[in-house]
């Protein structure tokens, strides 16, 4: 009995040490990527190439999901609000939910599973097929040539995707409530404009999505670069990217929300 308890405690300790070690390893890699970003800035073509894969190819899922999330918000919000006779506030509800929370968070979750996993798989496979080693042998640093451009492309495209998501959502809500249900168009926009504040809501939402972009792409490039160079290693790393970036997005969102909107209802 005592022996079992001891081994269970040892197990916990082992996991904690392992986790901390990995976290430290990841942080060191993150700083390394930042230090070696010079090439990405000097040769911006590299980042543009990656922007195509992380940004442009994520557009469809972002646009469609944004539209539908906005439509559902409009429908549900209208159903609930009309019970209290305040269906005019539906624009406010849609816009505030999207701009403050759903836009940055849902866009980041989609981004993690669409672009983050692709980044991990690509870097992991380049490692497994010795492409990164070959690059090192050609005296080209793989971190500055392969990792940093992908990192920056993610950091740039995330806030843009989140903004596109929110706008699509607002128009999705407009479509359902104004066009289909018949809420007054002027009320929809004016209620929204009087409630959504540029600095508190839009700017904070934008800052949130910047944080998410850094977090998701940092996790994705680290997992790819750190993946064991085997088929299972790369698939495991891809899964870990999606799981851990989703958890980090939600955790980070709570922390950021607590800081940004504290004392402001």
């Amino acid at each position: 009995m005592f022996r079992h308890a001891l081994s269970a405690i040892q197990n916990i300790g082992h996991r904690v040490i392992e986790g901390m070690w990995r976290l430290g390893h990841a942080s060191r890699f993150f700083i390394l990527v930042l230090l070696k970003s010079g090439t990405s800035l000097r040769r911006f073509g590299l980042v543009i190439r990656e922007l195509y894969f992380t940004g442009v190819l994520s557009l469809i899922i972002i646009v469609v999901s944004g539209l539908f999330v906005g439509m559902v918000l409009g429908l549900q919000g209208y159903e609930t609000l009309q019970k209290y006779g305040s269906e005019s506030a539906v624009g406010t509800l849609v816009a505030l939910s999207l701009v403050r929370e759903l836009g940055p968070v849902v866009a980041a979750l989609l981004f993690a599973s669409r672009a983050g996993s692709a980044i991990t798989a690509e870097i992991g496979l380049m490692k497994a097929t010795e492409q990164l080693a070959a690059m090192g042998m050609m005296a080209v640093d793989p971190v500055s040539r392969v990792v940093a451009p992908r990192f920056w492309s993610g950091v740039i495209s995330m806030p843009l995707l989140a903004a596109i998501f929110s706008v699509m959502g607002v128009y999705g809500g407009y479509l359902v409530t104004v066009v289909f249900i018949g809420v007054d168009e002027g009320t929809y926009w004016s209620q929204m404009q009087s409630a959504v504040d540029f600095r508190f809501d839009i700017l904070n939402g934008f800052i949130k999505s910047c944080f998410f972009g850094v977090a998701v792409t940092a996790i994705a490039v680290f997992e790819g670069y750190d993946a064991p160079p085997t088929a299972e290693g790369v698939s495991g790393a891809t899964t870990r990217t999606v799981v851990s970036s989703s958890l980090v997005i939600l955790g980070l969102d709570f922390i950021l929300t607590a800081f940004m909107f504290r004392g402001v209802s």
């Binding site: 195509y52 940004g55 929110s166 607002v170």
Partner: peptide
């Protein structure tokens, strides 16, 4: 072609931010 798409994407993103600020938010009011 790739440059064109990326250019369009960045413009769409900035336009979305403008819409959020001016149409959804109260920056103009």
């Amino acid at each position: 072609t790739m440059d064109l798409w990326v250019g369009l994407f960045v413009m769409a993103g900035i336009a979305a931010l403008m819409v959020l600020s001016l149409k959804v938010g109260n920056l103009n009011v």
